[in-house]
Design a protein around this nucleic acid. Structure first.
Lengths: 250, 250
DNA sequence: GAGTGGTCTAGACCACCCT
DNA sequence: GGGTGGTCTAGACCACTCA
């Protein structure tokens, strides 16, 4: 603590000096995640190394790590290391569409359309890209046991996702986010979803096999990188009578 | 640590001895909350006292307290004490009904009907009471700026909530949970909510001032005490086109 | 001013994963 | 066996709240 010129002390002073140590450390760690200096691909440095580097005790590092784990940014694996966590979509709203007796099996997905387009104004706005940009548009239908369950519209900014435009449709498979990471090097760090209800349009009605005025649940998602760059715009629709969302209040 | 006969050691051995100390302590503390030995009305004993009583270090007590705070069971007030937390309904689903330009102001509520009834089978089941029981039924309309926004059906088991049946309607006021605690001594510790969509029935349509086939969002709630006893069944309905629910995924 | 929770340290020992 | 995270201790000092 007398070594005021150690590298760690120096780095942490960038934050408000009135903040407690653990708060400064947290800012520091979040910065490394945002800047993609730490990625899910490999473990971050061990707690003892970080403590030494920043000139703080291991207990303080552990405390901050624990907070970031609780917050969902990091993931600890005992005996192995601590990793930046991949986004977990267990709680994504579309998982609350239920269909018949089907359990938690993943629906099959089929990409009906993939094309490069000029971006619509509303999509450009939420993706925070220029109005004259181009985007990759995907239309996808997810079904269970042959019955259509969900219809999805997906917009990806170009050229960031050019690899997805070029990839074979079989390479994209059932889950898109791993493909974003492996093919385009884009790591999704989080997402916001909004649920509304509307009456089914004719196009959606045909794909879902339902009446035109039947209520549908609409889930609008914006997925972002750890540094908050919008990565994907997605709108998912499914029949409202197959939807049941559960939440615990404490 | 050599005092194996201290009162604390004894008490903690009730749990699985292979469990780490902090896990046993957590079970112990949760037990005291469930049994209502600790209530929101007064602070729980200070950390130092608990550490002494159980024969563990303050750090271990602090760790467990922190976990219970994160989990929403406890609430710390620096310089004052630690309290059992009252349930927080900030995230209750009905708060995502939006109406015109109105901000976050609480809607006015009006109790249209209050009566003692024989319980319906479905309600008896979720309240876990006998099928021949009686319940207190409330019908409530919540409005903003004079426009009806939500219609609520509420069932409370008797005789547990007899005080609510006898109270003046003005004593119940806008918020029911404080009334449950103050008048009937029933402390709500948590709740589960489920969201579905249905078409508006004629009775609800009249109260909400909308068309009969218009989609409505239905929120079914079961509120429970800390010991898991079901306390309240509530069904809330509002027009689906005023509903927008937002969730962050991490 | 007394008592509470909040911060931070230093270090011992354990449990787990890898190769 | 060597390194990682996990548990637990003991104690110093600070910041806040309340009477």
């Amino acid at each position: 603590m007398t070594q005021s010129s150690s590298p760690g002390r120096q780095a942490l002073e960038l934050a408000d000096p009135r903040l407690p140590l653990h708060a400064k450390l947290r800012e520091e760690f979040i910065g490394r995640i945002r800047s993609a200096e730490w990625t899910p691909a490999e473990p971050i440095p061990p707690e003892s190394a970080l403590a030494g580097f920043y000139g703080v005790s291991v207990g303080t590092v552990r405390r901050v790590m624990g907070e970031l784990v609780d917050q969902g940014l990091l993931e600890r694996r005992q005996g192995d290391g601590t990793y930046v966590r991949r986004v977990r979509l267990d709680r994504a709203l579309h998982r609350f569409f239920r269909h018949g007796t089907a359990g938690d099996t993943l629906p099959d997905s089929r990409i009906m359309l993939r094309e490069v387009r000029n971006v619509e104004a509303a999509v450009a706005h939420v993706l925070r890209i220029a109005p004259e940009s181009q985007v990759l548009y995907l239309k996808r239908v997810r079904s269970r046991e042959g019955d259509p369950l969900l219809v999805e519209d997906i917009w990806l900014p170009l050229p960031r996702f050019e690899a997805i435009a070029r990839a074979g449709l079989d390479e994209l498979g059932n889950l898109l986010y791993p493909a974003y990471e492996e093919l385009a090097g884009q790591i999704v760090g989080g997402a916001r979803e909004e649920l509304t209800v509307e009456r089914c349009g004719s196009a959606t009605a045909e794909l879902l096999g339902c009446a035109e005025d039947e209520p549908v649940v609409v889930i609008e998602r914006i997925a972002r990188a750890h540094d908050d760059t919008p990565l994907e715009r997605r709108v998912t629709r499914g029949r409202a009578n197959t939807f049941r969302y559960r939440v615990e209040l404490t």
